[in-house]
Structure formats: structure tokens, C-alpha cells
Design a protein around this nucleic acid. Structure first.
Length: 491
RNA sequence: GGUCGGUUGGCCGAGUGGUUAGGCAACGGUCUGCAAAACCGUCUACGGCGGUUCGAAUCCGCCACCGACCUCCA
């Protein structure tokens, strides 16, 4: 089998993946800030790194996957100066900040389950790791790369840059950063406009705050990931993932903090998923152009022509490469829905296929193609294309225009089970004959269709068509075949 | 303005120095009582202009257009 290759943002190259400790992988991914419903944009990193998590396990690694919950810090937007995102929302809805956190954490987890995203090994929250963050801040002060002003602590970028390289992850040069920095008010505390807060003094009206050696305050945005990744994965770990929009300043700050604390890079492989766009623009909370996952699943957003199932969303996302932008549209979603249906039907068909004496299908070649696609930086669009090539073969075999022997049929079943369900994480959502969600409903439909068979045998096409048309109207798809019929419930 | 990335057929979306990506849609055919599903076939693109090359959508240069980020006041 070919090597597993991933694109490392740090080197801007594809690299062969080699874990720090043989057989084990430590992986950290930036999770959501829980101050609102999860939207389509949130699903991309979740699904991308779920795929990675699943695949690493498939090829035999024991993986510890950390995905954090950010529940302190972050402004709502520029207009809400000085207030933290969670605090702001709390005041609006007159709830305790931790109530907001709980509400949206629950809803995020529910959405992730719907998308068939596996729960990470550990899902730490920033508010649950204040002690670790204070310790990390202290370490930065001790190492001389952070300074204290009026109860806040700032990272000294200039000092850091005199010893290490600042900007190597995002490809920024410190001179450029200086020339591009806007003059902002109240930056007088900081020695340089490039410095960033690692601990922030809280005003009296600020609700979410904790005691610290520097007074009451709250941690800076970037320090939580440094503190929590270090705690659970160590000073150096294998993979850090997240959205491309976090590359700068967030991940750059993490690199700097790690270097400042430990004297070496904290992460071997940095991976960034691209963003979902809508009308060519980033879909994001701050832009207000987002569609929540619940709206997608229910079809309630005005831009949606219909509801799209969670697995359709998953398929839509995986049919594009994770490093490419992906544009939302009803047409694309509907194409995904139909494509997914075709794939899942063919997988279903595998169980009904009768083995032949000879094989006209090159299962081994197909398997190799699938592995080399996913090994090439998780190239799921190519992987899915190969799976569709196989779909054509499976359908042909079902039509008697191709054949597989027993051994190949078993291999084909394993291939599709592994890739479609275990690795890509798709699953069947529709009720079908034989596997109906509702047994009684299934029997009733069978009953009606058996009457239709009787009518057909009597050449009573009027009755026959009436039954089929009425069922079709209700959302059933009726297919006649030599054995009689089969049906499925379309949503 | 700076940095980085992108521009592919009706739509989505891969790929890449010479060979069919794939999905969806459309059209023709097979099958069917008629359908549906499936199968077979058709549809051959790579922003513009130059350059390198036997050959470029793929490499180089320029131009145009689009996008992301450019830092905390939290």
C-alpha cells in the first residue's frame, strides 16, 4: 500500500505521515465557540477531521483526538467593544453564561451526531482549564516572552522574533505585519501593535472572569489551545487541524506560544480545511450569511429549496477536496443527494448479488485505486469517483452484463463497507423494503403492492397505476422487477 | 495596500507536460403493459495575452477577475 501523505501548512508541501510514536497519533482540532447554533461552515472541519480520525484508525493507529469547546473569550464583532462573545449573548437572553455554553454545546453535539461525526477522544472546554492556562501564561512570563500591564499579560512578539521566527506558519513577515497594522485605540498598553493578549484583565461588569496572579480576568484566545493540547498530547504532537481562517493569527500564536514555552515546535503537521462559501463569499457568523445545520436538515432557511439530510451534507462536503473552497448552492446539494443515493443503492445491491464462476471485475485494482486516492492527502473526490466506477460494475453485474466470483464478491463487499461506511462515514437514511424503519408501515406497503401485482396479473392497468401513482405521491419509489417489486421511502 | 490561494464543460468538482476523472442535468437507445431504477451511447472544458517545448489546461512571465487573512479594543 502507498504511504499516507498529508499536506503540511508549515512546509507548504505534501509530506509522508510519520507519527512521533509508532502506532500512536495525537491530533488536536479547533472546535466551535459555543455562542450560537452550528452552521454549515462548522461542519467542514468537523467532517474533514472526522474522516482523518476514522482513516488513521482504519490503517491501524491508536488515535487520541482532542477537539476543544471554546466557551470563554472572543468578541461578538467590532461593534461590541470590550465584551466577550459569550457574555454578550448572556445579557441579551438574560441567561447565565454557562447556560448559553451548555445550550449550544448540546446543540453542536447533536448536529455532529446527525452528521455521523464520531465524538473525539476528549472534548475539553476552555473554562474547565483555567488553571492550565494560568500556568501556561506564567510559563511565558518566566521565559521572558510575555509581560504584564495593568492586570493583563501580553505576548512580546518583537522579543520572540529576535530569537525565533514569527510568522513561519502563515508565511507572514514581521516587517509586513508592522506596515499593515491599523492604528487602534487603547493599544497603548501593548509594547507593540503585534503583541497579543494571553491573559486579559476583566472590567467590573465582565461576567466571565477568574482570579489569577495578575488579578481577575480571563484567558487570551490563543492560550487555551496551547494549554489543552499540551495537557493531553504533550509538548509536541502529530497533527493540529482547523479552518483556514484560523491560520493567522490564532495558529501562528499557538506556534509562537509553543516555541516560547518549550523551545521547539509544538506541532509536526498543520492541516487546514478551506471554507464553505455562499455566493463566493465565506460563510460565517460575523458576516451573517450562514445557514445553520438545523435549517439545512429541516429546509427552513429562505435560501433552501428543500431540506437536505445530514448525510447528504456530509457527502456534499467530501465530494470536494478539503483544501479547496466549496460553494453552497441548491443545485450542488441536490446533485450530492442523488449521487449519494446511487452509491448507497449499489452498496445495498452487493448483498443481493449472486457469485459467478468468473470475475469480469478487477476488485484488486479498484481497491488499490481507492487507497492511493485517500492516501494522497485525503483525496475524497477521487476516492468517491473510484467508488462510482465500482458502482457501474456492481449495477452491471446485477443486470447480468458483468460477473464476480465468490472471492471477489467478498472483497468487493469489504471494500465498500470499509470506505463507504467506516471511512467516509456515510449511512443509509431511507426506509426500504426489507429494512423498513417502521415494520408495520413496511408490511402495509407490501400489502398494497401485492394487490398491485394481482391487478397487473389481471392486466388491470388502471388499478395497478392508481396504487403506484398514489404511493409515488406519498414519497415512495416503486420499482418493478422479475421477483415482483421493491420500494423505498424517499424523503 | 501587504501576504497567500483560486479562475475547469449547462451545474458541482478532480487532475495534470502527450491517455475517459467522477457526480448531477440534458439527449438518444435497451428493458418495462406504461413507468421507475439500472445498463449502453452522446455532450470533450480548462480566465486573457505572450513564452518554454515535438507537444501545455498542466511549466514560466504579464494582465484581468474572485476569495481568505492582515491580531484582541477582547
Amino acid at each position: 500500500m502507498s504511504d499516507f501523505i498529508i499536506y503540511n501548512t508549515l512546509s507548504r508541501k505534501k509530506e509522508i505521515f510519520k507519527p512521533l510514536n509508532p502506532g500512536h497519533v495525537g491530533m488536536y482540532v479547533c472546535g466551535p465557540t459555543v455562542y450560537g447554533e452550528a452552521h454549515l461552515g462548522h461542519s467542514r472541519p468537523a467532517i474533514t477531521f472526522d474522516l482523518l480520525f476514522r482513516y488513521l484508525q482504519h490503517i491501524g493507529y491508536k488515535v487520541r483526538y482532542i477537539r476543544n469547546i471554546t466557551d470563554v473569550g472572543h468578541l461578538v464583532n467590532d461593534a461590541d467593544e470590550g465584551e466577550d462573545k459569550i457574555t454578550k449573548k448572556a445579557k441579551v437572553e438574560e441567561l447565565e453564561p454557562m447556560e448559553i455554553v451548555q445550550l449550544y454545546t448540546n446543540s453542536y453535539r447533536r448536529n455532529m451526531t446527525q452528521l455521523n461525526v464520531l465524538p473525539p477522544s476528549i472534548e475539553p472546554s476552555a473554562s474547565g482549564h483555567i488553571i492550565e492556562q494560568i500556568a501556561a501564561v506564567q510559563k511565558l512570563i518566566d521565559s521572558g516572552f510575555a509581560y504584564t500591564v495593568n492586570g493583563s499579560v501580553y505576548f512580546d512578539v518583537e522579543k520572540f522574533a529576535s530569537v525565533h521566527t514569527y510568522g513561519k506558519l502563515s508565511g507572514r513577515k514581521i516587517e509586513d505585519l508592522y506596515s499593515n497594522t491599523r492604528e487602534l485605540d487603547a493599544q497603548t498598553e501593548k509594547r507593540s501593535s503585534l503583541d497579543f493578549a494571553v491573559w486579559k484583565n476583566a472590567s467590573t461588569e465582565h461576567i466571565m472572569k477568574w482570579p489569577s496572579p495578575w488579578g481577575e480576568g480571563f484567558p487570551g484566545w490563543h492560550i487555551e489551545c496551547t494549554a489543552m493540547s499540551t495537557k493531553y498530547l504533550g509538548e509536541t504532537f502529530d497533527i493540529h487541524g482547523g479552518g483556514l481562517d484560523l491560520l493567522f493569527p490564532h495558529h501562528e500564536a499557538e506556534v509562537a506560544q509553543g516555541m516560547a514555552c518549550f523551545g521547539h515546535d509544538p506541532v509536526h503537521y498543520w492541516m487546514h480545511n478551506n471554507l464553505i462559501t455562499i455566493n463566493g463569499q465565506k460563510m460565517g457568523k460575523s458576516l451573517g450569511n450562514f445557514i445553520t445545520l438545523d435549517e439545512l436538515f429541516l429546509g427552513t432557511h429562505p435560501l433552501l429549496e428543500k431540506a437536505y439530510s445530514p448525510i447528504t451534507i456530509r457527502f456534499f462536503i467530501l465530494q470536494a477536496h478539503y483544501r479547496s473552497p466549496l460553494d453552497f448552492s441548491n443545485e450542488a446539494l441536490q446533485a450530492a443527494e442523488k449521487g449519494l443515493d446511487r452509491l448507497l443503492k449499489a452498496v445495498d445491491l452487493l448483498d443481493k448479488l449472486q457469485p459467478a464462476d468468473v470475475s469480469t471485475i478487477d476488485v484488486k485494482g479498484l481497491t488499490e485505486k481507492c487507497y492511493s486516492a485517500i492516501n494522497d492527502d485525503l483525496n475524497t473526490p477521487v476516492l468517491i469517483a473510484h467508488l462510482f466506477d465500482g458502482v457501474k460494475m456492481i449495477n452491471s453485474a446485477n443486470d447480468g452484463k458483468a460477473s464476480v466470483n465468490k472471492e471477489d464478491l467478498e472483497a468487493l463487499k469489504k471494500l465498500y463497507h470499509d470506505f463507504t461506511f467506516d471511512i467516509l462515514g456515510f449511512k443509509s437514511e431511507a426506509a426500504t423494503s426489507g429494512a423498513a424503519n417502521d415494520e408495520i408501515l413496511g408490511e402495509v406497503v407490501d400489502l398494497l403492492l401485492n394487490y398491485r401485482v394481482e391487478a397487473k396479473n389481471n392486466k388491470d392497468w388502471a388499478t395497478s397505476d392508481k396504487i403506484r401513482n398514489r404511493l409515488t405521491e406519498l414519497g415512495f419509489e416503486i420499482k418493478d422487477n422479475k421477483e415482483g417489486f421493491s420500494w423505498e421511502l424517499k424523503k
